[in-house]
Nucleic acid binder design. Structure first.
Length: 376
RNA sequence: GGAGGGGUGGGAGAGUGGUUAAAUCCACCAGACUGUAAAUCUGGCCGCUUUGCGUACGUUGGUUCGAAUCCAACCCCCUCCA
C-alpha cells in the first residue's frame, strides 16, 4: 500500500523565485514544476513512459471529462486513475472549475454548484463542491482542486467579487468534503480568485488561508488579460501567499509566461500549450516557436534540437516532421508533442538549476537573448 | 463511319441569360491555440498601381442592353455500336 504524507519542502530561493520538492506517497515533484495536461486520462498523443522520460513528475486529469466518460465509479472499480492510465506517479485533478468557463454555454451556475449539459451526448450532470471532491477521490488524485468559478477578464469588480466569494464558499465546502472522503497522503488545494483586482485577490487569499490548505492555486489568469497584466496580478498576489506552501498558477502558460511567473514565486504550472500546439504543428525551440507545417521546412534536414536527449527533438529532421504533418500522419503530432513536452521540462530543469545556483537573472537574460521575450 | 455524353479557376466539381471573379471539397500560402467540446479553428488562394480596373468558364464568330449559361462552325475527350 502507499504510505507517507503530503508535504512541501522549500529549497533554495533567488529573489522571489523558489525551488523545492513536493512529496506525495506516489513520488516527489521537483519545483518549479510543469505538469502536462492529460484531461481524459491521457496526455494526448503520448505514451506514459515517454511523458516520464521528458522529466515530468506529475500529470493532470480532469473531473468533468472523466465523470462523463468513462465515469468516476468505473475508474475506481478498475483500480483508480493511476492504474487505469498506467501512470504510477502523482496525478493532480482539476475540479471542473475551468469547464464552468470554457463550457459556459452548456452550464447553469447556482450556489449549490454547476449543472452541465454534457458536450458529448447532451445529458445533464450536476457538479457540486462535494461531488467534485467525491469524484477526485474515486479517481484517486494525489492533488485535488476545489471547485471554483473561473471568470474571464475583463469583468466588473462587483461581479468579480461575487464570483470570488462563491469560490471561497465552495472552498470551505470542498475542504469539508475532502476531510471526510480523502485517503491519507492526498492533498486539496484552494484556488485564489478575484480577477485582476488587488483587493479581491487579497480578500480571496485571506479567506482561503483561514480555511487552510496544503497548497494554494492562483486561478482565473491567462483568460484574456494579457501577459503584462497577468504579471501585475502575480506581483501583488504572490508576496502574500504562505511561503511554506506550494503555489500553483493554473493553466499557464507559454514559456515566457512560466519564466516570468517563476521569477515572481510560482512553483507549479500546467498548460495545454505544448500538447495542443504540438498536435497542431507548432514546436517550441530555443529560438522561439516554429510552425513545422510552413513550406520553408520542406527541405530542412536538421532536427529541432540536435543537442537534446529527446529522440523526438534529435532524431527526426524538420523536413520529415513537415512531411508527416502534410501527409496527416499520426506520428507528426506524436513527435511534436513529445518534443514540446521535452522543451518545457528542460526549461523547468534550467529554472530549478538557476535558482539553486542563485543565477536566475542570468538564466532570464539568456532566455531573452534566445527568444526575444521579456519576462521581468 | 454511326449514336450519345462532355470540355469551368492547380485538381475534383457546382452553376443553364443579369444578384458570378464563379458554390463546395482538396491541394497550396499563412495565422491562432494558455486549469483541452481542439489530430482543431481562422484568413488568403486569376493579375494589377486593389473602396477600383483588367482578363477569365475548349477555340472562333454570332444573338442580346447583358452570355460560363442561347446559336453556329471548328478542335479535343469519353461511352456504346460498326
Amino acid at each position: 500500500m502507499l504510505s507517507g504524507a503530503f508535504s512541501f519542502s522549500l529549497g533554495a530561493t533567488d529573489g522571489a523565485a523558489r525551488c523545492g520538492v513536493i512529496s506525495t506517497p506516489r513520488g516527489d515533484i521537483a519545483t518549479p514544476a510543469f505538469m502536462p495536461v492529460g484531461t481524459a486520462g491521457t496526455v494526448k498523443a503520448m505514451l506514459p513512459d515517454h511523458v516520464r522520460a521528458t522529466g515530468a513528475d506529475i500529470v493532470l486529469g480532469n473531473t468533468y471529462h472523466l465523470m462523463l466518460r468513462p465515469g468516476a465509479e468505473r475508474v475506481a472499480a478498475l483500480g483508480g486513475l493511476h492504474t487505469f492510465m498506467n501512470w504510477p506517479r502523482p496525478i493532480l485533478t482539476d475540479s471542473g472549475g475551468f469547464q464552468v468557463m470554457s463550457l459556459s454555454k452548456l452550464r447553469k451556475l447556482t450556489e449549490e454548484g454547476v449543472s452541465f449539459q454534457s458536450h458529448i451526448d447532451g445529458s445533464k450532470h450536476m457538479l457540486t463542491p462535494e461531488r467534485s471532491i467525491e469524484i477526485q477521490c474515486l479517481l484517486g488524485a494525489d492533488i485535488q482542486m476545489q471547485l471554483d468559478e473561473c471568470p474571464a477578464i475583463p469583468i466588473a469588480e462587483d461581479a468579480a467579487r461575487e464570483s470570488m466569494l462563491l469560490s471561497a464558499r465552495w472552498a470551505a465546502r470542498s475542504k469539508a468534503a475532502f476531510e471526510e472522503t480523502s485517503a491519507p497522503g492526498q492533498a486539496l488545494f484552494g484556488i485564489v480568485q478575484g480577477a485582476n483586482y488587488e483587493t479581491l485577490r487579497r480578500e480571496s487569499l485571506d479567506k482561503l488561508m483561514e480555511i487552510g490548505f496544503p497548497g494554494y492555486a492562483i486561478g482565473g489568469l491567462a483568460v484574456g488579460e494579457g501577459r503584462d497584466e497577468m504579471f501585475r496580478v502575480l506581483d501583488f498576489t504572490c508576496p502574500h501567499m504562505p511561503r511554506e506552501k506550494p503555489r500553483y498558477l493554473m493553466g499557464v502558460g507559454k514559456p515566457a509566461d512560466i519564466v516570468g511567473a517563476v521569477a515572481r514565486g510560482v512553483d507549479m504550472f500546467d498548460c495545454v500549450a505544448p500538447t495542443r500546439s504540438g498536435r497542431h504543428g507548432q514546436a517550441w525551440t530555443r529560438s522561439g516557436p516554429v510552425n513545422i507545417k510552413n513550406a520553408q521546412f520542406a527541405d530542412d534536414p536538421t532536427p529541432l534540437d540536435p543537442a537534446s536527449d529527446c529522440p523526438a527533438s534529435r532524431d527526426y529532421s524538420k523536413a520529415y516532421l513537415h512531411h508527416l504533418f502534410r501527409a496527416g500522419e499520426y506520428l507528426g503530432p506524436m513527435l511534436l508533442t513529445w518534443h514540446n513536452l521535452q522543451y518545457y521540462q528542460d526549461l523547468m530543469a534550467g529554472l530549478r538549476t538557476a535558482i539553486a545556483a542563485g543565477s536566475l537573472a542570468d538564466f532570464i537574460a539568456g532566455f531573452k537573448a534566445e527568444t526575444g521575450e521579456t519576462v521581468v
